[in-house]
């Protein structure tokens, strides 16, 4: 993954942060019907991003197994 992240680490982080703030966390918060507080929503949003990241990572492994 380093070969992707190296050049665009900052922009990517900024983008993900923005996404979390604007779309994911409010979405989770809205879907929860008030069972969760705001920080829970952010934590779950982050968790979602981590899982998505893992999925991308595994997809890379499938495409280029030699590198792992």
């Amino acid at each position: 993954m380093n070969f992707i992240m190296k050049n665009q680490k900052m922009p990517l982080l900024l983008f993900l942060g923005l996404l979390l703030n604007v779309a994911i966390a409010p979405g989770v918060y809205a879907a929860s019907n008030g069972d969760l507080n705001r920080s829970n929503a952010y934590a779950i949003g982050l968790l979602g991003i981590v899982i998505f990241g893992l999925a991308i990572y595994l997809a890379l492994v499938i495409m280029q197994p030699e590198k792992f």
Binding site: I51, L54, A55, L58, A59, V61, I62, P65
Partner: peptide, 8 residues
């Protein structure tokens, strides 16, 4: 890796 992704 595929199985891992499926289970994920």
């Amino acid at each position: 890796a595929v199985l891992t992704l499926v289970f994920l």
